[in-house]
Amino acid sequence: MGLDWAWLPQLAHGLKITMELTAACMAMGAALGIVLALLRVYARGPFLPLFWLASAYVQFFRGTPLLVQLMIIHFGLPSVGIRFTPFLSGLIAMGLNTAAYQAEYFRGAIQAVKAGQMLAARSLGMTRVAAIRHVVLPQALRLALPPWSNELIYMLKYSTIVYMIGVMDLMGVARTIAARNFRFLELFSLAAVIYLGIVLLLTFALRWVERRIRVPGLGSAGRG
C-alpha cells in the first residue's frame, strides 16, 4: 500500500468539479428556495394556486430519492428530446432537490419572525413586499443560516452520486483511477480525507459568517 503523487493533479481537478457543482446547486437552491418559501407563507387569496404549486413542488422533491430524480433528468428526459451534459444534469437534479429542502428551512425561519415585525412595518406605511424585503427577510435569513449550513455540507457529500452519470468529480476521478490500478482502499480513503478536510473548512467558515451577521445583544444569530 502506498500513495502515488501522480494522482493528485487528477484528484484536484475532480475536487474542483465537486466544489463547482456544490456551489452552483446551493446558489440555485437558495434562489428557488426563497421564492418557494415566500409563496408557501404569503401566497393567499388570488395567489392561492401559487401556494399549491409551491407546496406540490416541495412535496415531490422531498418525497422522491435524489438518485431517482438524477436518473430521470439524465437518462429519462433524452427520450423526449431533452439532453444535458452530465455536469448540467447533476446540477439541475441537485439544485431542484436542495431547493425543496431549503424552502422548508426558509419557511420555518420566515414564520419564526414575530408577527409584530410585519405589523410595525405596515403601520409605517410600507407595502407588504417592502416589509418582507426590508424587515422579514433580513431576520429570516439569519435564522436560516444554521440549517442552511448543514444543507451545504450535506449536498457537498451527496454530490458524489453524480459519478454514476459520468461526471468526473472527486469521487468519479478516484473511482476511475482505482479501476485502473485496483488500489481501491488508498484512493477511496484519500477521497474521504479530502471530503472531510473540505467539510471542516466549510464548517469553520460558516461559523465565522454566523458570528459576523449576529445581531448584537441577541443570543445566537437573529434569535430573540
Binding site: 409584530g116 410595525a120 403601520s123 445581531v215
Partner: peptide, 12 residues
Amino acid sequence: GFVFQDFNLFTH
C-alpha cells in the same frame, strides 16, 4: 403613528 404595547422594534 402607531406605538405598540411590545414595541415591535425591528430587531436586526
